[in-house]
Write a protein that binds this DNA or RNA. Structure first.
Lengths: 142, 142
DNA sequence: ATCTGTGCAAAGTCTTTGCATTGCG
DNA sequence: CGCAATGCAAAGACTTTGCACAGAT
């Protein structure tokens, strides 16, 4: 049960914090190999998962893409640009615990939490779209 | 641009409607092979994706699991049991378009829609948990 | 000294794709 | 008939795992 405090484990935590913006396992691995080339990808995956289980990191599963890891533990929502795929936190928008209670009532689940992923076209892609054309921005389903 | 109305395409639509409860591509494939054993998995994937693009089916990406396909087009939310993995629609809880507007305002995205996945322990698993013990139900992160 | 964590590579899961062929329109 | 769709199998993206060994406690 007790987790050993290995160098690799520390490096994984440090990398996720350093990369900050929802790195994938691959990105964490790449970052670590810069200073510690001998780590294996399996170890990165094992540590990421173990840290998530311990509650030290969050895991965000992204539609059509690798899972991402999050050093911010406070509940928050995410937004994905359907045009460029960029994935970010939604700032200035509070987690709504109310919804858990309401859904618990209608479903009889013992509610834990909820994840929201907003989909839309980011300001940068909107500009690009305007230049190219007024085309079908925002018709993607994911 | 025009989609051909192939037998395989019809079978895929029919299977998703028949299976109703968010089948995976694999489940759709299995269902179809019962009556039409010669369809290939690649074709099932190609048709599912093409139907999603055409807006005839919905695609739901499930945390730690294969994508699921949905014949219900009206916006709705999903709930996943952290204990048995069951994945369902949330009934009796309306889609909240308001949130898109609010998030559009704070992010400047041209908002499209949002997906919510609730996580909790379903009534059945709660019963099991009670019998076994009062243990750590609901501590999973996904 | 113990026994978890590591490195490595192989395998597993889910999905896409190249290519020759089929069959819808 | 022409070209999009199919079947098949191979490959691709992401992740887990078996095993022998290393290193934290």
């Amino acid at each position: 049960m007790a987790k050993r405090n290995t160098i690799q484990r520390q490096l994984v935590i440090a990398a996720v914090r350093f990369l900050a913006d929802h790195p994938t396992a691959e990105e964490v691995y790449d970052r670590i190999t810069m200073e510690y080339p001998d780590i294996s990808k399996g170890t990165v995956y094992r540590n990421l998962n173990s840290l998530v289980e311990s509650g030290l990191l969050g895991k965000v599963s992204v539609p059509s893409g690798a899972d991402r890891f999050d050093h911010i533990l406070a509940r928050h929502y995410h937004i994905k640009c359907t045009h460029c795929g960029k994935f970010m936190n939604v700032e200035n928008f509070e987690y709504i615990p109310d919804m858990d209670e309401k859904v618990a009532k209608v479903t009889n689940y013992k509610m834990n939490h909820h994840d929201i992923v907003f989909s839309g076209v980011c300001p940068e892609c909107q500009k690009l779209g305007d230049e190219v054309n007024g085309e079908e921005l925002g018709n993607d389903f994911n």
